[in-house]
Design a protein around this nucleic acid. Sequence first.
DNA 1: GTAATATCGTTTCATAGCTAACGATTATGA
DNA 2: TCATAATCGTTAGCTATGAAACGATATTAC
Lengths: 173, 173
Amino acid sequence: MISVYSFNEDGELLQEEKDTINRLSKMPLDSLNLDAVSVVTNIYRVAQGLRNKMEREVLSKHGLSWTSFSILYDLWIWKSVETKKLAELTAVSKATISNITKTLEKKELVFRRTDTRDRRITYVTLTDKGKKVMEELYPQFHKGEVEIVSSLSVNEQKDVSESLRRVIKENQF
Amino acid sequence: MISVYSFNEDGELLQEEKDTINRLSKMPLDSLNLDAVSVVTNIYRVAQGLRNKMEREVLSKHGLSWTSFSILYDLWIWKSVETKKLAELTAVSKATISNITKTLEKKELVFRRTDTRDRRITYVTLTDKGKKVMEELYPQFHKGEVEIVSSLSVNEQKDVSESLRRVIKENQF
DNA sequence: GTAATATCGTTTCATAGCTAACGATTATGA
DNA sequence: TCATAATCGTTAGCTATGAAACGATATTAC
């Protein structure tokens, strides 16, 4: 997990860190927004933990990474998707999509074919084997999601979602 | 950005997705916890956006990745750190620390030396050049953090942090 | 005191991910 | 028409990342 900051058990920034930041960066301490630091750190930590847990407990069975799985998911929902569209959906570069779908093709989970009319376009489609993998993995994946947030009440889940959605919108993430 | 799920503008799961999940995974729809899906998706999306924004707007000036930066940060605070400890702090493997510190050493931002008493141990230390880079980058990094969460009120920031901290604790992330 | 075990960092090999460059194709415009 | 521009996917070359294996060293057991 990549955290940048260190925190004590109560989620407070360590005194050493405040001192160092103050001394070395010439930033007055009151210009340090600790709430922002805390939000950013905790979000990153949860995201990384989430990804690691899923890859370890669910996806590793089939040697899939988070990104591979999210590509398979998109193909599961949308049947056949252009590589360009896949790049947008998963927000990685076209080059990465090219590499990952090549790997998935080697595993016979997807196949690629070129549009007959516009040969610049490549469609990616789930194979039957790929479909079976998704039918097996998706319920386990969702079970993992539920477990991870189970320490929050439904209302807290809704609140966190709403707040984060606003962050996403404002930053155009 | 790696999202797995698709959502409409209001953050609702698309009808196509519900249909497909229901039909293909043999999961009854009422066993699908959409709040959990939403929390997980939004967290991952913010984390990814955050990382990309920082790497693009702040860290790329010095060709640093998020992880490289977090290693430099730890060294900035703690002066000299064993590679094993660095691996724990940033939660990446020892192998990754080995490679990244090697890269940072090539850039003359850190140096490594072996403990004279226990030659299995390697300490990593920030160079003066590395210190300068941190003094330049840290205020910009913090500015980015503040910007990202600026759409939330201070109380909302505290609430989100508190919820996420509970998730981290429960899952031991 | 020596052999077995544990610890630590590095190397090796694989995938993921990015950018830049390239090649093929289609669209545009004079 | 034909040249130029725009679009799309792939390739090449790089860093990041992890797992497994390895080599050196230190610790423990007998």
